[in-house]
Design a binder for these strands. Sequence first.
DNA 1: CACAATGTCTGACTCTAGTCAGACATCCGC
DNA 2: GCGGATGTCTGACTAGAGTCAGACATTGTG
Lengths: 289, 289
Amino acid sequence: MLRRFNRTYTQRIGVLEESFLGTGRPLAVSRLLFEIGAAGGEHGVTVRDLRERLDLDSGHLSRMLRRLEADGLVATAADPADQRRRVVRLTEAGRAARQDLDDRSEELAARIVAPLTDRQRERLTEALATADLLVRAATIHLREVPPEDPLGREALGNYLREIDERFSTGYRTSGPVAAEQGSTYVLATSDGEPVAYGGIRPAPALPGAAFEIKRMWVHGDWRGAGLGSRMLRHLEQLAAERGATSIVLDTNEVLTEAIAMYERTGYRSVERYPGSDPHATHFFAKQVG
Amino acid sequence: MLRRFNRTYTQRIGVLEESFLGTGRPLAVSRLLFEIGAAGGEHGVTVRDLRERLDLDSGHLSRMLRRLEADGLVATAADPADQRRRVVRLTEAGRAARQDLDDRSEELAARIVAPLTDRQRERLTEALATADLLVRAATIHLREVPPEDPLGREALGNYLREIDERFSTGYRTSGPVAAEQGSTYVLATSDGEPVAYGGIRPAPALPGAAFEIKRMWVHGDWRGAGLGSRMLRHLEQLAAERGATSIVLDTNEVLTEAIAMYERTGYRSVERYPGSDPHATHFFAKQVG
DNA sequence: CACAATGTCTGACTCTAGTCAGACATCCGC
DNA sequence: GCGGATGTCTGACTAGAGTCAGACATTGTG
């Protein structure tokens, strides 16, 4: 189905792309203009950031930026924090051009669906939203990150903040959270945004080769997309590669979805184990390897 | 939503296209190879046909064909029916190359959705099927055709055959069906295939400026996609432009979906009118203009 | 049978996209 | 404060995609 849809889509909606022409600017440049607006905001965005987001060659990007600059649509300046970096931001004319682009796309999208009835349009919107979520979920990128990785820290911060909000009693122990001994962290990103996080560490206080899963977090917008169990499987596999024969984890009774997921994924409830979190109320274990 | 999806899609699934590379052939050439296989079948396909299907420049297409020919993947010959035309068909090697392309795409598509659970994959397939149908429905092309248009005749043939099958008693009057006096026909196509058909003709036997809608047909795969009512609206508008103040049409009781659609679209049931089909059992009219 | 229309092909282009090597400045750790 | 790493930019490319004018053969029509 994916292939059939791909064919229909590129044939019929491919126009959405070509419409960027007619502004006298090639597609890639328009896309860049768009991205600078989206990522830049008030403060602008660094060239490096743009290169990562759009996955462009340094030379190619540089040339396109110069073109936009020559057209008076963007202004670049050295980043005060690091003079090697350059910060790009839209000028007034640039914002106008981007708005124009936006309007054209909007209008074209409206024209494409215009022949449909209201109910059909609703069905299409719904179907595309579902497909969007699932395609995004399917193409999420999982990777090991060191504890000091900035995106990892962001994810961890979200985890702690959410835990803190969830516990009316307050959870956070004061001071920064140190990386745990021998731990490995995995970060899942989508469009450069952290969407899930979690880690494993050896649990020497337990019998056998046990690993503990720690700090599992899934972005609120992504719950229900199967991301949690995917992260869990990934962490289990990592632990198994490091010689684990069993996995333990603890959680709190207020995290009902998490508990349901652990049970669904083959974990069985166990007694409190040594080294577990004092705030935890539920404990799980599973054999692996 | 269309735009958001478009962004996700081109970013994540754009790979489906690039995968055509790695075969040493550029994308457009691979697409052409694919299309020759799809459209050509046993008898091959004319260059003209390919140009229309892929919307390519004559020179561009010619060069790509030559490239495929040099690689030994296609063979061209003059069309016996018209020596100006050239017919292209895949060679044995061409069929193999196309199959290879097909396998790669299939494999890649499978890899993209691999991280999803079975249930998610099902949901994605369903969502894409819905989106596919609706996008196709939205981009269908309606145009007036002369009675002798080959695609129009094909549609009319389908109409007559289906009517014939539907009536156990047999419907068809013997001999070819002549175009009706002063009539105008509209054909809807998708990917060059006729998907709906219908006509109007003046009904001089009726009081006032009446037009009759005749021979409405919608392709079986397309029923429920709103195509019938769209065609109906289009025909009404055409009639109105020709000065009609009322529209009449007849149908048979066995065509229950059609009857439901007419009622939904504002037609009211009337008595048999002069000039109507002797096999018809239900008659409808509507004011327009 | 002349003539316009049709169908394909070649040649000569342009523009976009993308790659690679290296210049140059700045930053960071020792 | 030296040397490697990082970030950006320029120059010199290549290949793909697409456009346009016109050559040439064939076909249908008055």
